[in-house]
């Protein structure tokens, strides 16, 4: 009998800790007929950037890692995180990303057993003042919280005053008037970090600017303890019970939050095409740098990215 310790770095009340991972544990217990069980410690055992390291070193047996924080280790996992690649359907994006993984870089995670990957609802651009952000000038005149990484770099490139902190610290920055706008939070983020009261309007871009992806994996030694039959059974259920479920929950929470925009007085505005073009242009160097890294890692970056974009679009229809 194998018992896995599964880490959850989100706050204990978040649906990844209360629904997604417990749901996976139930499935695993069911398909292995109780030969493999698992539990989640009450509090995260290690900080978000260290999830992969914690599973490798055996602090815990399984964990979820935000791929943006391990970009120096895995390149393929960042395919679905290339700006302007996503859609607004997380389940479709997740399926496309998993397909792309299987096709182009299936053995990328070589120190752990990768069981699932998923893409979450993209974030938007929000104004915290009565003036919406529509034009490039609007954008440049703002002090803006942005998700660290591509979004922060894009916003900085365009000339906004950028404050970038991990998403969990966005509330502090947004609620305390450090910024007057923010970019990168999806519905779940707006709700979880309680920034809705400081949000007055949302700017609709024709394609999502940026989407984040996660990986879920198990320690290699622990995995080896499990019989090949049970390994197969766990593999068979993981992507559906973790990846797809997580993506679905993110979308449904985001929809719920969007549905309250009217009563909260949050207005919707269409982006000025010139601003969108500027965002696209500012994002180009990011994808170029990624393509260079991918070829270094022996991955056919252009093909992988094209495949992902095509499949994500097809599946989203």
């Amino acid at each position: 009998k194998t018992r896995l310790i599964v880490n959850c770095f989100w706050p204990p009340q978040h649906f990844v800790c209360t629904k997604v991972l417990p749901g996976w544990i139930e499935e695993v217990e069911r398909v292995t007929e109780g030969r493999v069980t698992a539990n989640i410690p009450p509090k995260s055992v290690s900080p978000p950037p260290e999830q992969l390291a914690s599973v490798e070193k055996g602090l815990v047996d399984a964990a979820v890692q935000f791929n943006g924080l391990i970009g120096n280790r895995v390149t393929g996992a960042l395919t679905a995180m290339q700006p302007f690649s996503g859609t607004r359907n997380s389940i479709a994006m997740t399926e496309a990303a998993w397909e792309t993984n299987k096709k182009f870089y299936p053995d990328e995670f070589d120190t752990v057993e990768l069981l699932a990957q998923w893409v979450i609802t993209p974030g938007d651009i929000y104004s915290g003042t009565d003036t919406p952000i529509i034009t490039l000038e609007d954008f440049q005149s703002r002090k803006m919280w942005a998700l660290p990484g591509p979004l922060a770099n894009i916003a900085k490139e365009l000339g906004a005053g950028v404050v970038a902190t991990p998403a969990v610290r966005s509330n502090e920055v947004i609620a305390n008037g450090v910024v007057d706008s923010h970019m990168g939070l999806n519905g779940d983020g707006l709700k979880a970090f309680q920034v809705l009261p400081y949000t007055k309007s949302v700017t609709r871009v024709s394609r999502p600017v940026y989407t984040t992806t996660f990986s879920f994996f198990v320690n290699a030694d622990k995995w080896a303890e499990i019989s090949p039959e049970d390994q197969e059974a766990i593999r068979a259920i993981s992507q559906a019970s973790v990846g797809k479920v997580a993506a679905g929950l993110w979308d449904s929470v985001s929809e719920e939050v969007q549905a309250t925009f009217d009563e909260q007085g949050i207005l919707e505005h269409k982006i000025d095409p010139a601003l969108e073009a500027a965002l696209v242009k500012a994002a180009e160097p990011i994808t170029e740098a990624w393509l260079a890294k991918a070829s270094e890692a022996g991955i056919d970056g252009p093909a992988a990215l094209a495949h992902y974009r095509k499949r994500a679009a097809e599946l989203s229809e």
Partner: peptide, 23 residues
């Protein structure tokens, strides 16, 4: 609970994380 090497890593993570906690 988890082995010596895991515990060493845990100490390193907790100490560096806390020492660099902006709050």
């Amino acid at each position: 609970e988890r082995g010596w090497s895991a515990s060493l890593t845990m100490v390193a993570q907790q100490v560096t994380e806390d020492a660099q906690n902006y709050n």
